[in-house]
Amino acid sequence: MEKLTLDQLTYSSRFLSWPPLGKLLLALALLFGSLFADSIIVPLLVLMIGMILLYSSNRFNFPRVIIWAYLNTLLALFIGVFIITLITPGTVIWQMRLSIITLSLSKEGISLASLVFIRAIAGFAVLMFFASSTPLPHLFIALQQLKVPKHVSELTILVYRYFFLFIEQLGSMIQAAECRLGFRDIKAKFRTYGVIVASVFGRSMDFAERAEQALYCRNFRGEFPVYRKPAKLTARWIIIPCIIFAALIVINLKAGKFLTI
């Protein structure tokens, strides 16, 4: 089966035609609406909206590498939330003294940890929706509308493009090293990784030199022209995120303090 790439994912999204800045504002409205809430209802609502957007965008069809990255982050998130549960002061349910540190499980700690966890998961869903429906070069070209310096957007697009070239080289080198038992023990692993990193660096510098010569041969004058510009931000795309943010704040006020378990 052919592997799904990130570019294929974003360019096949149903929301590709939406203005990138509009999608960014929508994502920010949802993220900040969830962040400002002290009721668990709001992050749950944002999670639901995020999941609906994600499903409508590309039916939960993601490259495997992204799914692994998200699962990896989820594990780190569990550790962070666990610590918050143990350190938050409040009505103590369980306590343990460890020399200078006192670990206690409080009602408030569980509530706060639940809120942070749902908020983080909701944030993942919203970020995933945004990343899977917006080709990142589109976003950075669109940022020029907000007077972000052109050299920054160009630099960002070039970093994005070169990353995929280098990750391919890195993959081939790792596979070649595996075939030669380059990862057989810890010492070999370090040596192999060091050699691979230096090789990718050397190659990338050669590549930059070749690309520079090629560009000058094509009359490069320090700027990259953009031929297919993404949709522009319209007033509708400013009003809708503002309404969503205001609605989330109102829901938070009506819902009261966060859920007590």
């Binding site: 630099l155 070039l158 493009r161 990338s204």
Partner: peptide, 13 residues
């Protein structure tokens, strides 16, 4: 521009 972009991509890699 290219050298710096390549370096950014290298950090990401």
């Amino acid at each position: 521009k290219l050298t710096l972009a390549v370096s950014g991509a290298f950090i990401f890699v």
